[in-house]
Amino acid sequence: MVTIDVSSVSTEEELHGLLKQEFDFPYFYGRNWDAFWDAVTGLVRIPDHIRFAGWAELLEHVPDGGRMLQLLLDRYRAEYRPGLLVEYT
């Protein structure tokens, strides 16, 4: 399991930077949701169990980014990795 603390993220750019770092996305990661989808479906394998700590704070500061991240991870689980466990705490 990997725990990613998103409580101090205040912009979508910061969120993408943190995701790039934590998931070891390549240097050319585009820092947008299309690039995120491309990365998780073809460039890297994300962990089987992910916990996002500070989720309420993220949704307070970056609501659209938080919702998009959750939507894409739900889609990824449905299409590619039914065993993926994602927690939002």
Rank of each mutant, 00 (worst) to 15 (best):
F52S: 02
L73E: 02
L15D: 00
Y29S: 01
A39L: 01
I46L: 06
W37H: 08
H16E: 03
E22H: 00
S7T: 09
T3C: 03
H16K: 08
G42S: 15
T89Q: 12
M1N: 12
A35P: 09
D34K: 14
W37E: 09
Y27V: 14
D5H: 03
E60P: 02
E22T: 00
G66T: 03
Y76K: 09
E14V: 04
F28L: 11
K20S: 10
K20Y: 00
D48M: 10
Y29E: 00
R77V: 07
M68G: 03
L43S: 09
L72N: 10
D64I: 07
I46V: 12
L59Q: 11
R81T: 15
G17V: 00
A56W: 05
G54W: 00
A56K: 11
A35V: 07
V9Y: 04
H16W: 04
P82R: 08
Y29A: 00
G30I: 10
L85Y: 07
L43K: 13
G65A: 06
E13D: 11
L72R: 12
V40N: 05
P82H: 11
V2S: 15
F25N: 01
D64T: 11
V9R: 02
E14I: 03
P26V: 08
F25H: 04
P26I: 06
K20E: 03
W33G: 05
F36H: 02
E14K: 12
A39P: 04
R31Q: 13
I4P: 00
T89M: 06
P26D: 10
V62S: 06
F52Y: 13
R31K: 15
T3K: 12
D5Q: 05
L84N: 13
A53N: 10
N32D: 15
L43I: 08
D24H: 15
L85E: 15
F23C: 03
P26N: 11
L58T: 05
S7F: 07
R67A: 12
L58Q: 06
R75A: 11
T89Y: 05
E79W: 13
R31W: 02
L18H: 00
L18K: 00
Y29K: 01
M68L: 13
G17P: 01
R45N: 12
L73K: 03
L69K: 07
V62H: 05
V44P: 14
D74Y: 15
H16A: 02
I4R: 02
W37K: 09
F23Q: 04
M68V: 07
E12R: 01
V6C: 01
Y27N: 11
P26G: 09
D48A: 12
V44S: 14
I46A: 00
A56D: 12
G17Q: 14
P47K: 09
F25M: 12
D34M: 10
E14R: 05
D24A: 13
V2Q: 15
F23K: 07
L69D: 06
F52C: 05
L69T: 05
I50C: 06
Y88M: 15
G66Q: 02
